[in-house]
Design a protein around this nucleic acid. Structure first.
Lengths: 374, 374
DNA sequence: GTTAGCACTCAGGAAGCGAAAGTGCTAATC
DNA sequence: GATTAGCACTTTCGCTTCCTGAGTGCTAAC
C-alpha cells in the first residue's frame, strides 16, 4: 500500500514550513519544538554529509541551545519513537524512513530555485514547444542536471487510447505510411500491400478511417465497423484489414506507456549505491520499466502535487533505500505524463522537490493547450 | 587512430580459424604452433574465469602436450613479444590488448548460434518488419539478451539528409502537423500559426514543399528557393518561413544520429567494472553519445564485416579495458545503422562476434527493400 | 529539567603472519 | 638442442590481533 504525503493547506507547493505541524491530525506523534529542531538538523546534516550525526556535532547548531547530554536524551527518545536509527552503538544517529517522512511532510523549508536556474529551465523548454515527446525528455534531462540525481519521464498508461485523426502518405505504387495523431503525439506505421495503392485509394482510405475509427479504442473496433469501412472503400476493400490491424497494434502498444531515464550515471555519485547488488537491481529496474510504470501510472492521476515515496513505501522491493519523487504534467487539464527523480533515501529533498515542482509547472506552461490557443 | 581487424580471405564472416595464419603479411611476428595453442588457451581460459592463468593449469589442456616448465618458457617469450601480461610476479598471465587482437584476428574458431537462438532472433524481428526504429531497438535488445553484454544500436550521422516527401496534416484552424519522410523514417513537427490555415493552404503548402524542397540538405535551402516557394503560396506566403524553419531544424537535428543502449545493467555482471570510477565514466559515455557516435559513424560505412575495437584502440579514452564490437545494417545496399556490443576487453569474442554477425544479417534481411519489393 | 563526567561499546585501520600460487632459473635428462 | 624436474623467491590474500577515536548511556550533581 502506498502512503502519500499528507498536507494541511492548499499551499501551492504543498510544502509549508513548521506552521500547523502541532495541529496535525491522526496517528502521528507530537514532537516538541526542540525535538523537531533536532530531527531537522539531523536529517539535513545527514543529507549533506552522509555520515551518522552525533550529539556533539549538533551543539554547533545555534538554534539548538543546550548541551550534548540533553541532545542525547532527546535523540534517544526520537529513536524510540521511530524517527531515528543507529547503525551501531557507538555511531551517531541517522534518520529512519519515518524520520524522512516526517521531515518531508512537516519540517522542510520551502526552497526556491535561483533565478538563473529558472531561466535555464524556461529557455530550454521554450525551444521545444509542444512536441510532447521531446519536451518530456528535455525536462528529464534538465531535472537530472539540476538535481544531480537520476531523472525519469513517463507517459502514463492510458486506459482509453484513441486516434484523433488519420492521414495516409503514399510512397510508391504499393507502399504507404499511415499517420495517426494520438493525443499530442504522432505515430506512424508502414503499410505494404501486395497490390497497387492508387492515389485516390489513399485519399478514400484516409477519409474512411477518419469517419469510422476516430475516437475508438482498440476494443471498440468491431466487425460491423470493419465491414462498414470496407463497404466505403469499394473496390479497394482489400486495404482495410491490414490497415486496421496496424491501427490496433499501434494503439495497443502505445497503451503501455513510455519511460525514459536521464543521468543514470548520477547514481554512482552516491555511496548509497556502492553496493553492486543494489546498483544492479536498480539498473535492472530501469530496464524492466513495467514495475515502475505501474507505480507511476496508478498514482499519476491522483494529485497534481509533488509526490514523495520514501524507501519501503515503494511497492517495488528493490527500492528500499531509494526515494522516488515525481509530479504529473498536464495538458488541457488532463495528465499526459510525469517527471520525477529517483535517488537514495538520503536525498536533498528540499532541492529535489522544488526542482520537480518548478519543472513540471514550466512544462505544463510550455505545453499550453495546442488545440485551443489562438 | 583506429586499427581495424585485418583479414586475409573473403570468408563470409571474416573470422577464419588457424588456416593461413602462418602466411600473415607484414609486421606481425610469427608464432609457432605451440605458442598459438598456448595463447589461445590462455585467452579462452581468462575469458571464461577472469583469473590470470598459470602454467600448471595449462597442462590440463590435452592439446598442449608438454610440461609446465616448457609452457613457462613459452609464456615468457609470449610476454616478451607483447601478447601477454603479468599483473604481478607471482600471478599467472593475462592477455594483453595485442594478445586479444591476435586471438580475434587469427586464433578464434568460428562459432555458430544454436538453431533455437537463430529462431528466436528471426521471429522477434519478423514482427517488427521494416519499422527501422523499432527493428533496431529490438535487435539491440536481442543482442543484449543473447550475449549478456550491453548492446547498442545506432543510426549513423548522415552527411546529406534530405526529405523525400512532405505532407501536411491540418489539426484545427491554426495548427497543423508537418510530416516528413526521411530515408526509412518519418519525422513530424508541429506548426502553429497566428493566423488561420485553411485546408487549401495546407494542400498548397504540401505541394510547394514537395516541389521545391525534396532532396535538398539544410545547406542547400537558400533564399531564392524560399522566395520561389513563397511565390507559389500566394496569399499564404506567411506560412513558408516558419515551416521551412521547422524543416531545417529537423534535418539538422536528425543529422546527429541516434544511439540507444540495451542491457546497461549487464555491465555490472563483470568484475571488470567493479571499479566505480570506470563504471561511472562508462555510463557517462553512454549518456553523452556524441563521442561514441563519432566512432560508430565514421567507421560504419567502411566495411560490411564485424568490426572489433579492443581497449586503447578506441579513440575514446574511457574505453581502456573495454571492447566495442559492431557491424553495420544495410537497406537497399546502403548502411542505415549499426548494432553492436560493448563490454570488458575480457569478453567472449567468439560468441559476441557470431551473435552480432547473425543478428545484423537477419536485420538486413528483415528490413528488405521497402520501396522496391512487389 | 539540564549538565558534567565516566565507563563502555564498536567500527575501522594498521601491523603481522602464514598459506597458496606461480614464477624464473639451474641442472639433469631425453 | 629441446624438454623437464626441482627449488628458491616473490607477491597476494585472508586471518588475527591490537589500538584508536567517536559516540553512547547512565549516574550523580546542579
Amino acid at each position: 500500500m502506498l502512503i502519500q504525503t499528507r498536507r494541511s493547506g492548499s499551499d501551492r507547493s504543498g510544502y509549508a514550513g513548521e506552521r500547523g505541524a502541532e495541529a496535525v491530525s491522526g496517528g502521528e506523534k507530537k514532537l516538541n519544538e526542540r525535538k523537531k529542531l533536532i530531527l531537522k538538523a539531523i536529517v539535513e546534516a545527514y543529507i549533506a554529509n552522509g555520515e551518522p550525526v552525533g550529539s556533539k556535532y549538533l551543539t554547533t547548531n545555534k538554534q539548538i541551545a543546550c548541551s550534548s547530554a540533553t541532545i542525547r536524551n532527546e535523540m534517544a527518545e526520537l529513536e524510540e519513537m521511530g524517527y531515528l536509527e543507529q547503525p551501531h552503538t557507538s555511531a551517531g544517529r541517522i534518520p529512519s524512513e519515518a524520520g524522512y517522512r516526517f521531515y518531508v511532510d512537516q519540517l522542510i523549508d520551502r526552497y526556491n530555485l535561483t533565478q538563473s536556474e529558472i531561466d535555464e529551465l524556461k529557455t530550454a523548454l521554450r525551444q521545444k514547444r509542444s512536441e510532447l515527446d521531446a519536451i518530456m525528455q528535455t525536462a528529464a534531462a534538465l531535472a537530472a542536471k539540476l538535481t544531480n540525481y537520476t531523472a525519469l519521464s513517463v507517459k502514463p498508461r492510458q486506459a482509453r487510447i484513441t486516434v484523433n485523426r488519420f492521414e495516409i502518405m503514399r510512397l510508391d505504387e504499393t507502399t504507404a505510411v499511415l499517420i495517426m495523431l494520438i493525443g499530442g503525439t504522432v505515430k506512424t506505421k508502414y503499410i505494404r500491400s501486395g497490390r497497387p495503392i492508387p492515389p485516390d485509394a489513399a485519399m478514400l482510405l484516409a477519409g474512411a478511417l477518419n469517419a469510422k475509427l476516430t475516437g475508438l479504442t482498440a476494443d471498440e473496433i468491431t466487425m460491423p465497423i470493419l465491414m462498414e469501412t470496407e463497404r466505403i472503400m469499394g473496390e479497394y476493400d482489400f486495404l482495410v484489414s491490414p490497415v486496421v490491424k496496424a491501427v490496433c497494434e499501434t494503439i495497443s502498444v502505445f497503451d503501455g506507456g513510455e519511460l525514459r531515464f536521464e543521468g543514470i550515471n548520477k547514481l554512482l555519485s552516491f555511496p548509497d549505491y556502492y553496493d553492486m547488488d543494489r546498483l544492479r537491481e536498480m539498473l535492472a529496474l530501469f530496464e524492466k520499466k513495467e514495475t515502475l510504470l505501474e507505480v507511476l501510472s496508478d498514482e499519476t492521476r491522483k494529485d497534481d502535487q509533488v509526490q514523495v515515496f520514501i524507501g519501503r513505501e515503494n511497492v517495488v522491493k528493490v527500492m528500499d533505500n531509494s526515494t522516488l519523487v515525481f509530479k504529473t504534467v498536464s495538458q488541457n487539464g488532463r495528465p499526459v505524463g510525469a517527471i520525477g527523480i529517483i535517488g537514495p533515501t538520503r536525498m536533498d529533498y528540499r532541492r529535489v522537490i522544488a526542482t520537480i515542482d518548478s519543472l513540471t509547472r514550466s512544462v505544463t506552461d510550455a505545453l499550453g493547450s495546442p488545440r485551443d490557443d489562438g
